[in-house]
């Protein structure tokens, strides 16, 4: 599984994170668990990939962060979508469905 993950295109990871945050802010671990959950265990994002991605997307302006309290009263850094991030999520979703449709068609035609 781990090997397959390193083949994840950078763009795909970005999209998954954006999607995970679609419903509201999460901290790092929470994002990782949410992705695992919605993909039914297919993608397990390790912190080694997650943190760089999160920080990069924050640089790009798609996410913003703040320190808050988690469950168990621990301090954690929460990330949420910005307006630009939401727009990015929409365009990424649309692009991805176009690609998958094209690939599906290609595979059907023999």
């Amino acid at each position: 599984m781990a090997d397959k993950q390193t083949e994840l295109l950078q763009g795909t990871l970005d999209m998954l994170i954006l999607k995970a945050l679609g419903l509201g802010p999460l901290h790092g671990l929470g994002i990782s668990r949410r992705i695992e959950q919605v993909t039914r265990g297919t993608f397990q994002v390790k912190p080694g990939s997650l943190f760089p991605a999160l920080h990069r997307m924050e640089e790009e302006g798609w996410l913003s962060s703040h320190w808050g309290e988690s469950e168990n009263n621990r301090r954690a850094k929460y990330y949420q979508l910005t307006k630009t991030g939401r727009r990015q999520l929409e365009s990424e979703t649309e692009r991805w469905s176009r690609i998958s449709l094209a690939i599906a068609r290609a595979l059907e035609a023999s």
Partner: peptide
């Protein structure tokens, strides 16, 4: 701090 926090949560 973020990494430590992550460690705690984990």
């Amino acid at each position: 701090a973020e990494v430590l926090a992550h460690l705690d949560l984990l």
